[in-house]
Design a protein around this nucleic acid. Structure first.
Lengths: 242, 242
DNA sequence: TTGCTCCTCACGTCACGTGAGGTGGC
DNA sequence: TTGCTCCTCACGTCACGTGAGGTGGC
C-alpha cells in the first residue's frame, strides 16, 4: 500500500484523463465524483481511489448511461445493474431505430431530386408532403420496393413516365369534355394505357395496388395525385374501366 | 379567395396540429411561426397562410432540422436547401453510426453475462475495461469474428475453456516453481496444450493472433490477461515454445 | 512581481414541459 | 358569476463550454 499518498490536482487529472477541468467540476456538481481532499488553499486533491472511481464513471458514461444514474449506481453498488442496463439498451435501440428511419427519409428526399440542382423550399415541401402521405398508406416494405423500382428505372425513365401521365390525363379529359361515351373504343384505348401505367408503377404487386387505391379513396383524388388529376377525370376513367 | 377571413385561436391550432400550446409559443420565440394578427384582448389569431407555414415547419422539423435553421430557411426561401439538407444528413449519419456502435457495445456487455443473474458493478467494470482494451487492438471485423465464435461455442464451452486455462496456467507455474527445464518433455506437453487453447481462441486467424500478441506486448502480461497470468509464467512459456 | 492554476458564480445550449399569477370572452 | 382559454414570465431538463472576476503557489 505504498504510494497511497499520491494526490492529483484537478488540472493534472484532467490532462491525464483527457477531460476538461470544467467536466470534472460538473462531475462533482452532479455527484459522480468528488475530490476526497482539499489543499489549504481550497484546491481539490484527488486520491488514488478517486482516480479509480473516475475511470469507473468513464466506463459507465461510455455505455451512454446518464451521469445521475451512474451516481446512484456507485452510491449503492448492490442495486441491480443488469436491469438498469437492459432498460438503457431498450432506449438506445429506440434511438437507433429513430435515426435509421430519419436517415432513410433523408435518403428518399435527396433521391427525389436530381443531383446538384438547388432545391426550392416549395418543391421540397411538396416532396415531403407526398412522402408523409405515402407513409400513411404504404408499409415500410412497400416503400422499399417502390424505391428500388425507381432506382432500377432511372431518372430518365421516371421523367418520361410522368410525362406520359400528363399526356394521358389530358387526352382523357378532352374526351370527357367532348362528352364521349366512356365505353367508346377511343376511350377504351386510353383506359388500356391507363392500366399499363399503373401496372408499371405498382410493378404488378397487388398489395401496392391496394395501398394506392386506398390512398386515393381516403385522401381524395386531387390531394393523392398532388393536383395533377381532377376528380371528374378520375370519375370518368372509373366508368370507362368498370 | 373566399374563406380568407378564417382565423385560428392558438388552442384550436394546437388541437388540429397535435401540438401543445406551449410548443406554438416556442415556435414564436425562436421565430419559426408568429401569428399574423392579435385580437383586441391580445390573443393570437393565426391566418390561413400562418397555418400553411406551420405545416411547412412541421415537415422540415420532421426531417430533423433544428428550428432556427428552419426559421432561416423560411425567411429566405432562395437559400440553398439541398446543401443544408446534405450537411444535415451527414450529421444524422454520424448519429446513426454512434448509436450503432453503442448498441453493439451494450450487446457485447450483456452477452458477457449469463441471463438474469444480477451483475455487480465491479464485474461490469471489469468487462468494460476488458472491452475497451480489446477495442484498442482488434479491428471491428475481428471483434465481430470473436463474438461470432463465442456464440457458436456457447456459454458452457466457454466456461470450460476458461477452466482449462486456469488449470493449464497452474500446471505450468508448478513446473516453473520446481525449476523444470522448459525443454523437458513434460513442459513441452503443456506448451502443446497452450498452443491448442490459443488456436481455439483465435480460430486460427493470423490477424487475430497478431492483435492478441500486440496487446500482450503493449499492455503487459498481467493487464492483458486480467491478472490470470503472471509475467514470470508467460516468460517461462515463451522459452518453452521458442 | 509575473504567469499559471485553481476557485466560485453564472449564462448559454435545444426544444419544449410545467407551473405561477393574472386577465378576457375570436 | 363560473369555467375555459389565453397571456406573459420563468424555472427545469442534460452535459458540459465559456467567460468573469478574484485568489493562491500540492
Amino acid at each position: 500500500m505504498e504510494e497511497n499518498d499520491k494526490r492529483w490536482r484537478i488540472g493534472e487529472l484532467a490532462e491525464q484523463s483527457g477531460l476538461t477541468v470544467r467536466t470534472l467540476h460538473h462531475f462533482e456538481e452532479v455527484g459522480v465524483l468528488t475530490a476526497s481532499e482539499r489543499s489549504d488553499a481550497g484546491h481539490r486533491l484527488f486520491t488514488e481511489s478517486d482516480v479509480r472511481r473516475l475511470y469507473a464513471v468513464l466506463a459507465l458514461r461510455d455505455l451512454g448511461l446518464p451521469l445521475r444514474e451512474i451516481a446512484k449506481q456507485l452510491a449503492e453498488p448492490d442495486r441491480d445493474l443488469s436491469s438498469t442496463l437492459e432498460r438503457h439498451r431498450e432506449r438506445v435501440q429506440e434511438q437507433l431505430d429513430f435515426f435509421r428511419r430519419l436517415d432513410d427519409k433523408l435518403r428518399r428526399v435527396s433521391l427525389a431530386f436530381e443531383r446538384p440542382t438547388d432545391v426550392s423550399t416549395e418543391d421540397l415541401l411538396e416532396v415531403i408532403g407526398l412522402m408523409n402521405m405515402h407513409e400513411k398508406y404504404y408499409t415500410d416494405e412497400q416503400l422499399e420496393q417502390l424505391a428500388k423500382r425507381r432506382e432500377e428505372f432511372g431518372d430518365e425513365a421516371i421523367r418520361k413516365a410522368e410525362q406520359d401521365w400528363v399526356e394521358l390525363i389530358a387526352a382523357v379529359d378532352k374526351e370527357r369534355a367532348n362528352g364521349t361515351d366512356p365505353k367508346d373504343p377511343k376511350v377504351q384505348e386510353l383506359a388500356l394505357r391507363w392500366r399499363e401505367l399503373i401496372e408499371a408503377f405498382t410493378g404488378g404487386d397487388p398489395g401496392i395496388r391496394a395501398s394506392l387505391q386506398k390512398m386515393y379513396e381516403q385522401e381524395g383524388t386531387e390531394k393523392a395525385s398532388r393536383g395533377t388529376l381532377k376528380p371528374e377525370v378520375m370519375e370518368y376513367m372509373n366508368r370507362a374501366m368498370s
